[in-house]
Nucleic acid binder design. Structure first.
Length: 198
DNA sequence: ACGCTGATGAAG
DNA sequence: TTCATCAGCGTT
């Protein structure tokens, strides 16, 4: 199965976001394969988006968003959690898709995920269904840290996305982004996309 | 509803 | 150098 190519990411952020739903995020860590199906995402688009980290221009933290599409943007939030984004669109147009939720894949993957989270601080929840249902939780479970910032998802063997041919059930749902109350009128934009439970 | 936690960027 | 602010999570 092939990694999604550069051209997949080098498009309108909303198209990339919606097409990422149902794809499989793969992380290789210490010889283990950790994976989940992407279920919920959010768009952050350009310097005019008041919720986007690039709203005040390029900084050391967000510079990867200004680069080529297909790279990972990983940052620390609330001093405790890492968030994973996929950089989209053309160079110098800062935009990305935040990965908010995954569904563990059936079979051994769940066991591997559980095994990989043993001993991780604050990891009291051991139920697979609740392991990956938040942007900070999924990075914790897949061991995605700021060391993975700027990783090239189109060439990396440690972090990438594949299309396994799975077909989405029903329609893509749409809602306001979470936790962006500070973004004034942009807080109301329905730029969160997710699949409904089946 | 709140505490945890520390990088970030803006102010001084 | 200090300070308020966070794209969250878990427990009350």
């Amino acid at each position: 199965m092939k990694k999604l190519p550069r051209l997949f990411y080098e498009r309108d952020t909303h198209i990339v976001a919606k097409e990422l739903l149902g794809k499989v995020l793969v992380r290789k860590w210490r010889g283990k394969l950790l994976a989940g199906r992407i279920w919920e995402v959010e768009c952050y688009v350009g310097e005019n988006d008041k919720a986007c980290h690039a709203r005040k221009g390029k900084t050391k933290r967000n510079e990867v968003m200004f680069g080529r599409a297909g790279h990972a943007y990983v940052y620390l939030i609330y001093g405790m959690y890492n968030c994973l984004n996929m950089v989209t669109e053309e160079k110098d147009w800062p935009a990305a898709v935040l990965i908010r939720g995954l569904v563990p894949l059936a079979g051994s993957t769940e066991d591997v995920l559980l095994e990989s989270t043993k001993g991780v601080r604050n990891f009291s929840s051991r139920v697979p269904d609740t392991l990956l249902d938040g942007p900070g939780k999924l990075t914790r479970a897949l061991h995605i840290l700021r060391a993975q910032n700027k990783e090239d998802l189109t060439t990396s063997d440690k972090l990438f996305v594949i299309d396994d041919g799975w077909v989405k059930p029903g329609q893509i749902q749409k809602a306001e982004r979470i936790g962006v109350d500070y973004a004034e009128e942009d807080a109301k934009l329905k730029w969160r996309y997710f699949l409904s439970a089946d």
